[in-house]
Design a protein around this nucleic acid. Structure first.
Length: 107
DNA sequence: GTCGTGACTAGCC
DNA sequence: CGGCTAGCCACGA
C-alpha cells in the first residue's frame, strides 16, 4: 500500500467511471477536491498500481484529446473505441455525451 | 529542505 | 482557429 493520499483519491474517483463513459483529468481533480491538480492526477494515473481495476484509459484531456498513456495513446484509443467511445483524429467525439458526472461526496 | 519533472488547463497572441 | 506561454499540484532525488 505504498501510495500517497493523492493517488488513493485519484484511483478511487477513476475507478468510479463506468464503461462507455469518459472523464477529464480536471474533472477527477475536482472530484477529489483539487481542481488545480490535474497534473498530479495524471502523475498518479501514470503509476496506476490498480491497472485493470482503475480504467485509466477512460481519463482524457479537457480539450477532448486522448492525452498520454502508459501503454501508448494508440492502445488507449483502441480500448476506448471498444468501449463504445468514438475517436476521430485522436480526439473523442460526443465528449459531452460520454462525460461522466462525478459525485461530490468528497467535499 | 530545495530543485526539477510530469498522462494537465486556461489564457494570450 | 491554431500555436505558445505561464500557472498549479504532487512526488522523487
Amino acid at each position: 500500500m505504498n501510495i500517497s493520499k493523492l493517488q488513493d483519491s485519484v484511483y478511487l474517483a477513476t475507478g468510479k467511471i463506468p464503461k462507455g463513459k469518459l472523464a477529464t483529468y480536471g474533472q477527477i481533480a475536482r472530484a477529489i477536491g483539487k481542481p488545480r491538480a490535474a497534473r498530479a492526477v495524471g502523475s498518479a494515473l501514470r503509476k496506476n498500481p490498480f491497472a485493470p481495476k482503475v480504467p485509466c484509459h477512460r481519463v482524457i484531456r479537457s480539450d477532448g484529446e486522448i492525452g498520454q498513456y502508459a501503454g501508448g495513446q494508440k492502445k488507449k484509443i483502441a480500448m476506448l473505441k471498444k468501449e463504445g467511445i468514438k475517436i476521430r483524429d485522436g480526439k473523442a467525439i460526443n465528449l459531452d455525451q460520454k462525460l461522466y458526472c462525478f459525485k461530490r461526496s468528497f467535499l
